[in-house]
Simulated scan of single mutants.
Amino acid sequence: MGRKFIDCREFPSDMNCSVTIIADNESELVEASVQHAVAVHGHQDTPELRDQIKAAIKDGMPSEKAPSRAA
């Protein structure tokens, strides 16, 4: 089993969030990412948010270089 991550730098944000969350399994990563999205970005914890987070998960480790933000 490899590491998984989600990088907030990939998403448009007024605050230009630079947080990256890394975990060993998808469920732990989704839970931590939902908590971040709700507490920091003001999102509601919905099935749609969880689906978006699951779709954004990548395998491996994030690059130190900031990725391009989605438009």
Rank of each mutant, 00 (worst) to 15 (best):
M1L: 08
G2A: 15
G2V: 15
G2M: 09
C8V: 09
C8I: 09
R9M: 08
R9C: 03
R9F: 04
E10D: 04
F11T: 03
P12L: 05
S13Q: 10
S13E: 04
S13Y: 06
D14A: 06
D14M: 04
M15S: 14
N16C: 06
N16A: 00
S18V: 14
I21N: 00
I21T: 01
A23T: 11
D24F: 07
N25C: 07
E26Q: 01
E26P: 06
S27Y: 06
E28R: 11
E28Y: 08
E28V: 12
E28P: 00
E28D: 12
E28A: 14
L29G: 02
V30Q: 01
V30W: 03
A32E: 14
A32S: 15
H36V: 07
H36R: 04
A37M: 06
V38P: 11
A39T: 14
A39K: 13
V40M: 10
V40F: 02
H41V: 06
G42R: 11
Q44T: 12
Q44K: 15
T46F: 03
T46N: 09
T46Q: 06
E48G: 06
E48W: 07
E48F: 04
L49M: 08
L49G: 06
D51W: 08
D51I: 12
I53R: 03
I53P: 01
K54G: 02
K54I: 02
K54V: 01
A56K: 09
A56S: 10
I57F: 00
I57W: 00
K58W: 01
K58Q: 10
K58F: 04
G60I: 09
G60C: 13
M61W: 15
P62M: 09
P62V: 09
E64F: 14
E64G: 14
K65W: 04
K65Y: 10
A66H: 00
A66Y: 05
P67T: 06
S68Y: 15
S68D: 12
A70P: 03
A70Q: 11
A71P: 05
A71I: 11
A71V: 05
